[in-house]
Amino acid sequence: MRARRSPEGRVAVVTGAARGVGELLARKLAARGARLALVGLEPDRLRQVSDRLPTDSGHWYADVTDTEAMERVAREVRERFGRVDIVVANAGVAQGGPFADSDARSWNRVIEVNLLGSATTARAFLPALLESRGYLLQIASLAAITPAPLMSAYCASKSGVEALANCVRAEVAHRGVKVGVGYLSWTDTDMVRGADEDEVMRELRQRLPWPSNRTYPLGPAVDRLVAGIERRSAHVYGQWWLRGMQGIRGQLPGIIATVGQREMRRFEPRLAAGRGARRGLVGAGGAADEKARAEQP
């Protein structure tokens, strides 16, 4: 097992830091002595998170899909703290429902935030990470390991960020920068609670085989992410059983296709009843993203 490198005194950037995984990760890193740069779309919540941290911190309002904004943030964080050692590309949104009935604007936004936003974050901060020989952690998901019906945008985006991180890792390893992928199953966040508000999505998830059919507490999952950051790990698993999924991932598309066909036939009448209703981004984070875009000039 790789030796741990304490985050004490190091500068960590966390996107999507206003709530959920990002907020708790910032708090736990700060408790270990890291200085924090918080990035997100909810300035009041970011300020509240920053004010409660026990170490030096700052917060930046920025859309991770905005190249100019993220370059500005990277420059200002570097000026504010003098260095950047850790970057966690955590910002993400989700949208559910059948692909054929999906709202194209919301579907595309999931790809923009989760995949293009992660690429924009990495591109903006890589120069600083190359200076510090730092660590980039891309938050992916069980959705990167296995496809799932009614989650096409999210699965596509998380598969993309996993591939992105694996590519970048190979490109920068010889210069001392480590790149990791963080995998989380259903974890108790606003996003998951928002997805569960859809009756079909909730029931379909409950019909998944154990242990993928339950919601896991946030704290232990984030503790595992922190341990992965300290070890600068290539792969970090928020739940213990996700590591084992890697060995069977080649078989999963076929299994999901067979089981998914049966379940979609079961749910088709209820899906048809809701056809035509707009399915926007889920959860409080999704609402914040939609609000920020609506306020853009």
Rank of each mutant, 00 (worst) to 15 (best):
Y237M: 04
A273M: 13
V93F: 09
G20Q: 07
R279K: 15
R109N: 07
G97K: 01
E263G: 04
G97L: 03
F99L: 15
P98G: 08
S118C: 14
S57Y: 04
A37I: 05
N114E: 08
T65W: 11
R293D: 02
V88E: 09
L208C: 05
Y216P: 00
A272W: 01
R32T: 13
E263F: 05
S212A: 15
E112R: 10
K291F: 10
P54E: 09
V259E: 12
R32E: 14
A26P: 01
R4K: 12
M1E: 14
R4W: 03
R47V: 06
P209C: 08
R243H: 10
V200R: 03
Y135L: 07
Q296G: 11
S106D: 14
G96K: 02
E76G: 00
P217L: 04
Y154Q: 08
G20I: 12
A163S: 15
A234D: 15
R175H: 14
N166P: 00
Y237W: 10
D56L: 10
K291S: 15
P297W: 05
Q138C: 12
G20H: 06
A31T: 00
M201E: 12
E268V: 15
W186Y: 12
E199P: 05
A284D: 15
T120I: 07
V73W: 01
A74I: 04
E79F: 02
T187D: 12
T146L: 15
R78Y: 10
S102P: 00
T258N: 08
Q246D: 09
L126F: 09
H174S: 15
D223V: 04
L252E: 05
V236E: 01
G286F: 10
F267E: 05
L41F: 10
G247D: 06
R231K: 11
A288P: 01
A144C: 05
N90C: 13
R249F: 03
V200K: 04
R19N: 14
Q239Y: 02
D196N: 13
S152P: 02
L38V: 13
A234H: 07
E23Y: 01
L36P: 05
Q138M: 14
V110R: 03
G244N: 03
E199F: 08
R224K: 13
P98W: 02
G92Q: 09
R4S: 14
L137D: 10
V113E: 14
P54L: 11
Q206S: 14
D51G: 11
G254D: 11
A273T: 08
Q239N: 03
V179C: 02
P149M: 06
W60Q: 04
L136T: 06
